[in-house]
Design a binder for these strands. Structure first.
Lengths: 408, 408
DNA sequence: GTATTTATTTTAAGGGTTAAAGTAAATCAA
DNA sequence: TTGATTTACTTTAACCCTTAAAATAAATAC
């Protein structure tokens, strides 16, 4: 006669099992219990339910049996077809679409050149609808449902309201994009800052497993940052937290793309480096306000080959970066600062002055034990993170929908 | 045959009831249910248990009955005698001891002048033992137990390890103080940064209830900060997060007490203001490296009365503060920045340049909707916060001990 | 083939919550 | 005064969830 349903333990335990399987791949019931602090009786019960719902499958026993006495483990694993998610990365003049399955694997990826800066808000919406529709038609055969869509956007976004507040890739502002896409595709839409996606991927790597408080700095055309606190992205009041690129190096210093002066980005971003170099050096021509990868590589090479003017420019960028990181250490005291993004190509030319600036700026007590490391850049990382975040965000819904359809 | 005890819901609900009573004062069982999302049947069960354990009492009905039909509410309230906590604030050359009861009310407060800078670690330990023993003997009659002790310390502390890493009040470092006090008084000892205590008190005020992400800046002899994220103090990897005072205004700028250059503290703290003024102005004599309240008031008065040199000094301090706050806004994007501490006496003389610097530093998208306000300073706030935090930290233990003694 | 080992499932109990029913204690209305 | 009404609290009887223990399953070791 009672309908409690307030008890969350079964729900929580079920989500924990799903996420363990996603992180670890196939796992036996005993081990699922041990990893999540629940009894194997409960795991039996939960996995029976998930099997019936089609969210997991039992993996057939290996042909060469693993050594050891006793009854062999029966591994269960996520059913990759149970759901899929789409992640769209929006950057300057390019979008990338990636499809991921329920187990988190990337199934498909495509890039499109798009003149993003010329689009209106309606154009963008129409474009996204078209591209997502196409990918749904071509790539989503066999999946039981589209669980969600993640929009990974450079710039300031409000995840909560699903609004792009400002992006360097777009010439309009305050676009409530999530709601429209959600309505069109009948699934939840997660709007994320691109740096948060990358930080989520990096934080999942075993090398950084012991860093609950992780700062990721992304060098590139602009400079982005993500702060994970206990493993979750810190968003702040409007989602405009972690704007490292616009924290200050020199009040009244160099002009930044944001229109103000003295931002770290105005010294250490691609456009700032190229701007500083354009007057003094003989570099490949082109749009010097939006240097290409080729142009940046040429400039980096000059510095690494010992050209004094190029070295001076990178040294000053390193100093700016160092002061900025010193402020981050003083304010966040993270376990680890990771520097990545396409701009890491020039990290070796900035590293010395960066470390020097940090050591000059902070006494050892405040410098703390924070590791500061660079990290190779992979342009696919953003969407991998977006897929992981979208799956995580939609697990509860996928679960409840599977329960509903299993009952009927 | 089973001893589950893993189910945490009863425990969580019981703590929620205790904390609701502490925050709200006497509350009826129905309202406890509504406030915490549990049924009143459960509240009946929980409060029966707490009554039996002596942690709460039923308040006798009011003589002039509250209007309204129906059976009147029976209010329950915390039994103030159920436990008490002691908070000790350690600042430069002064300690304050405060006793709080289980309901969170301050029962006793005392100040002692102590030459803290001349103490060794052992001296400090002996001194604290002596003062705590004395207060226990005199003030703890009638309390069922001493639940915990809170040490509120200016400087960098590691709450986790109970170690004072560095404090401007002490001439030694890395003192593992918590463990020894805990052993001596057989209760848990919470080591907290003083700014976190103050932030906790402020965050509990109704005016700031809608600010889950709150930054509190404390101006005084030095400059401290606390960052509450979703209402809990952010500590960072070693507890040295939120060191706003040592974030940078000008690389290679003014000399700071920490030994480095260009820190915000080197411009806007009491010692920095007095140092800048000492050469130009006719001020009360004394130790200009440790200006007294009287000296600071004289200096502030000069600025507020229009003395150009004093005004220039406060204007520059405001600019430094503004750049520092701009960085805090860019990195944390909080809902509210509160400026308090004894140094708010000079806030009016800094405010204009501070706001100007913030507006110059950040575009509106990054400036966000963060409110920036000052807040009157009360030297007792630290210990009030320490008491609240100590009670919060020890509630679970108080509960389990009461259960154990109620069974026997 | 039997003992041993390990994994999974079943069973029985226990803790927790709640809807509903029951009880208590007030006001309102005649 | 008395009964209807209203609101608060308590008791009861489910129901959910978890787990220890027992049972079962499926391998290896001897």
């Amino acid at each position: 006669m009672a309908l409690p349903s307030t008890d969350t333990s079964r729900h929580d335990n079920t989500l924990a099992v799903i996420r363990t399987l996603r992180d670890q791949g196939p796992v036996a019931r005993v081990d699922l219990g041990a990893l999540n602090g629940i009894s194997s009786a409960t795991v039996t019960s939960i996995s029976a339910e998930l099997l019936q719902q089609g969210l997991i499958t039992e993996r057939p026993p290996e042909i060469p049996r693993p050594s050891g006495r006793g009854r062999p483990k029966t591994l269960v694993e996520l059913n990759p077809q149970a759901a899929c998610v789409v992640c769209i990365k929006l950057s300057i003049n390019e979008i990338q679409l990636v499809v991921g399955d329920f187990s988190g694997q990337v199934r498909h990826s495509e890039h499109h050149a798009v003149p993003t800066l010329t689009l209106s808000a309606d154009d963008l919406e129409a474009l996204l609808e078209e591209k997502i529709s196409a990918i749904c038609a071509q790539q989503l055969k066999g999946f039981q449902r589209l669980a969600g869509i993640c929009l990974a956007v450079q710039g300031v976004v409000s995840s909560q309201s699903g609004t792009i507040i400002w992006s360097p890739a777009l010439s309009f502002r305050n676009a409530p994009i999530s709601a429209r896409i959600a309505e069109r595709f009948h699934c939840s839409v997660l709007l994320e800052n691109d740096a948060n996606c990358i930080a989520s991927v990096l934080a999942a790597q075993p090398a950084y497993a012991d860093c609950p408080n992780l700062v990721v700095i992304m060098l590139g055309y602009g400079i982005g940052m993500s702060v994970l606190i206990n493993g979750v992205p810190y968003l702040g009041a409007n989602g405009s937290a972690a704007e490292f690129g616009h924290s200050k190096y020199q009040p009244d210093g160099a002009l930044c793309a944001c229109g103000r002066r003295g931002c770290i980005e105005a010294y250490a971003s691609d456009y700032a480096l190229y701007r500083a170099a354009a007057d003094h050096l003989n570099l490949p021509s082109g749009d010097s306000a939006h240097p290409s990868e080729q142009q940046m590589q040429a400039l980096t090479q000059l510095a690494l080959n010992g050209d004094p003017a190029a070295q001076r420019i990178y040294a000053e960028a390193g100093r700016a970066l160092g002061i900025g990181i010193a402020n981050v250490l003083a304010l966040f005291n993270p376990d680890l600062v990771l520097i990545t993004g396409s701009g890491v190509r020039g990290f070796d030319a900035m590293q010395a002055t960066m470390h020097h600036a940090i050591d000059e700026a902070l006494v050892t007590e405040l410098r703390g034990s924070t590791r500061i490391e660079s990290c190779a850049w992979d342009r696919d990382m953003t969407c991998m993170g977006g897929i992981a975040m979208a799956l995580h965000a939609t697990d509860a819904q996928t679960l409840s929908e599977s329960q509903a359809s299993a009952v009927s």
